[in-house]
């Protein structure tokens, strides 16, 4: 399981988010990832290292290629965490719905 703190830290960079967006479409090599970003391969590799240690991507060996893909458990852990936070916020708003409904009927009566 990834450390949420390092996962959010990894996500705080727009290039790394864009890399994840690309990997959401399927696995890719460093070279393929470097192309749309006008970045050098070492620069992309540094971002990949951050994403990898945050548990958001995994790299597999395929001959000399090491294609990257999204790490499902890492992505799912963040999603579960955000779901919990969304749920807590939505609970507030459901209470507000009830308050608004009561206020409305108080005005009518």
């Amino acid at each position: 399981m990834p450390n949420l703190d390092s996962a959010f830290s990894a996500l705080s960079d727009p290039t790394r988010r864009a890399i994840l967006a690309r990997l959401a479409l399927g696995e890719a090599t460093v070279m393929e990832l470097a192309k749309p970003f006008a970045m050098t391969q070492p620069a992309v590799s540094r971002h990949l290292k951050v994403l990898e240690s945050a548990g958001l991507i995994v790299r597999r060996a395929e001959g000399t290629r090491r294609p990257c893909q999204l790490a499902k458990p890492g992505v799912a852990a963040i999603d579960a965490w955000l779901d919990m936070l969304r749920g807590a916020l939505e609970k507030n708003y459901e209470r507000l719905d009830a308050v608004l409904a009561e206020t409305k009927s108080e005005i009518k009566s």
Binding site: R17, A21, V75, L82, G87, K91
Partner: peptide
């Protein structure tokens, strides 16, 4: 990541939107 253990802060994100940039 850390400031919302209590679930009180109104700041939540969809991973899909993070990933979609």
């Amino acid at each position: 990541a850390t400031g919302m253990e209590q679930g009180m802060e109104a700041s939540y994100v969809r991973l899909e939107s993070l990933i979609a940039g």
